[in-house]
Design a binder for these strands. Structure first.
Lengths: 205, 205
DNA sequence: TTGACATGGTGCCCTGGGCAGTATTTAACG
DNA sequence: CGTTAAATACTGCCCAGGGCACCATGTCAA
């Protein structure tokens, strides 16, 4: 029996809160977990089956009209496994940031492309940040959201994600202001070198 | 011929700077690109071949003693393709953060596990941040690093990454301070609700 | 001269991303 | 009341990517 993945434990975590059909599980993952553990909806459909194989979940088949469905629930062994997992070592975070990759190679394009990229980075982060604002408004209106007893852990995560997106937006503002003075994307190393050195000195501390 | 991936373009970007063997390319990717575009070293070995197939790179085979090696260089078509790519739409950043996932399900474990997780998050981010400090010191000492003419774009990236890791560390400090008052990991939603609401109100603006 | 580390890779198995496709039920609208 | 859009509930398939194992030669320091 293959070792369970972090994705499996994420699904097991949701199952610890209540029973779900695979469809609901996939949607809930997208809504509430995707920001820290993004996985394609398609793959999430395979996870509950693995949990059943491991003895951490049970499947209950029924139907709505003539359409069949499967509802999953966690087992006591599943709860123990989840708790054990919470005490194991974590892998460091991984960031996949195509926009910043473009910035790193921006000297191979023109200044307009660089500044467009920075603006798109800002807009995308702004949109993500906006989603959290809507989510927070919903939670305030619904007096804690779907799981008010979990408000405390959700608030810890919310604080991080909000600051994360705000940080991207403010980096973008800074980058737009700095690149305004660049003659072009390729030769700014010379004219802008005092500012670049300031960044390095700050980073080196 | 299959569409090239972002990983392909990242490698093409390095090839635009100078010629490399696949081995050097893989190492350079790890050193300078991994923070924004992490890929397993193994897979990076396949990329130059795809670039050759697409007509964006040329391979030159020679040997060091009796050991053969292949050095890749970019073609004019490769430079044009890289430039075109720099003008296309970017996909939003993706964050994979197992530590934060654990925080979101921390109510299923005990408070000790949560606080250990937060401490490990802080330590890991501190270590990553430290790597950038060393890198920045190296660049200052070597008067711009391996590619001094690219100092300006590297400084933009460096500013972002430094602030990113600093943000994680400061989130962790905040979280340690807040969880100090929690009675346990499960029932803090009640006693801590005024602080949680403050986070939501802040997020909702 | 011997052992560690750097150079320069390939094979293989499984997970994951992403598109396409299928079928039924419920809600929305004119 | 009938039509249609959206939600529910999934599966198949192909390729990219993660990660381990494995190989060989070159270089440098003790």
């Amino acid at each position: 029996m293959a070792e369970l993945s972090t994705t499996s434990y994420a699904v097991l975590g949701l199952l610890s809160l209540r029973d779900w059909t695979t469809y609901e599980l996939a949607k809930q993952m997208q809504r509430t977990i995707d920001f820290v553990w993004p996985r394609g909806e398609r793959k999430l459909y395979d996870e509950p089956k693995r949990l059943v194989d491991a003895g951490f979940a049970r499947a209950r088949r029924d139907s709505v009209g003539r359409r069949p469905r499967t509802t999953y629930s966690i087992t006591p062994a599943g709860r123990r496994a989840l708790k054990r997992w919470l005490g194991t070592e974590i892998t460091p975070p991984k960031l996949e940031f195509e926009g910043m990759l473009r910035v790193l190679f921006a000297d191979q394009g023109d200044l307009g492309q660089l500044r467009t990229t920075i603006e798109r980075i800002s807009e995308q982060a702004g949109t993500a940040r906006e989603q959290f604002a809507v989510m927070a408004q919903g939670m305030l209106a619904a007096d804690g959201g779907d799981f008010p007893q979990r408000l405390h852990v959700n608030a810890l995560g919310m604080r991080f994600m909000i600051d994360h997106y705000d940080h991207i937006v403010s980096w973008a503002s800074w980058a737009m202001k700095e690149t305004e003075r660049w003659p072009d994307s390729r030769h700014a190393a010379a004219t802008w070198s005092h500012r670049a050195r300031a960044v390095l000195i700050d980073a080196a501390t």
